[in-house]
């Protein structure tokens, strides 16, 4: 199928700003789904609120646009009802780690089979550029005109320690890598977290004088390195990208089904 067969063309062009990284994530996600040969009816996308959450409106899968931060809670319900389908949960950094922080760590702890894509643009873009838990110390935002004094989360470490069984990080510049990572994340049986560093030239870029979308993507090219590279040893400021965790643990829906079968068996006796 052509890429446009996965898009609801009547809503295009989308609302994202020129150069927004979220468009690149949507583009690569379509290609990952196409490479896997999944049918549109095999996928349910559940999103919360924010720029990133708009993606469910544009993609022609089964889609749910739900409450801010609660996408994973809705997705858990959907997955328990239809464990045979692939669940993809696109979230923003604010959606996943601020208001939805608890849903995020507990979905990871349960190891329920779904793919959480966290599009980390380090700011609340839709509401006007307020700082998020990922903005970082010293960074500028509409609500931090003298510099942010909050420390940032590391999504990879957070997901890893919360128990996610697939954790990866990539950037919008490394879209070819992103396609491969998303394919592996969707196929992985368990809770998969993919952090995508995504540029917000309109707010984060402008407030922090990082230039336009092209400049921000070049900074991802220069500022990141594959896991375990020599460059990281020489320059510890580089951000590592790649697959950090990929392991097997009992999956929640499978375990739940086992309980149902066990109780049914006991009742029949």
């Amino acid at each position: 199928m052509a890429v446009r067969d996965y898009i609801r063309e009547r809503f295009m062009p989308h609302i994202w700003c020129p150069g927004c990284g979220h468009g690149i994530v949507m583009n690569t996600l379509i290609r990952a789904v196409e490479n896997l040969g999944l049918r549109k009816n095999d996928i349910i996308m559940v999103s919360g609120i924010g720029c990133s959450a708009r993606i469910t409106g544009y993609l022609d899968f089964h889609t749910l646009h739900t409450l801010h931060g609660r996408a994973l809670a809705f997705a858990t319900g959907v997955k328990l009802g239809r464990p045979d389908l692939h669940i993809i949960v696109p979230m923003g950094d604010g959606d996943a780690t601020a208001i939805g922080g608890n849903h995020f760590i507990h979905a990871a702890r349960r190891n329920i089979d779904m793919t959480a894509i966290i599009m980390n643009n380090r700011i609340y873009g839709m509401t006007g550029g307020q700082y998020s838990p990922l903005s970082g110390y010293g960074r500028m935002a509409t609500t931090a005109p003298y510099g942010n004094i909050d420390q940032a989360f590391d999504i990879v470490e957070l997901a890893w320690s919360a128990g996610a069984t697939f954790v990866a990080r990539t950037t919008t510049y490394h879209a070819h890598d992103m396609v491969t990572i998303l394919e592996k994340a969707i196929v992985h049986k368990g809770f998969s977290v993919v952090e995508v560093l995504s540029q917000c030239p309109t707010y984060y870029g402008r407030k922090n004088k990082l230039g336009d979308a092209v400049e921000m993507m070049k900074s991802y090219q220069k500022g990141t390195t594959p896991i375990g590279s020599n460059a990281k040893k020489q320059n510890p400021d580089l951000v590592e990208r790649g697959i950090f965790v990929q392991e097997e643990k009992p999956e929640y829906c499978t375990e739940y089904e086992k309980i149902i079968q066990k109780v049914k068996g006991e009742k029949q006796r």
Binding site: V3, W16, G23, I24, N27, T28, T172, Y173, H176, A213
Partner: peptide
């Protein structure tokens, strides 16, 4: 094609 945020290039 892969990096177009607007999916305008094919």
């Amino acid at each position: 094609e892969l990096h177009c945020p607007d999916m305008a290039i094919e």
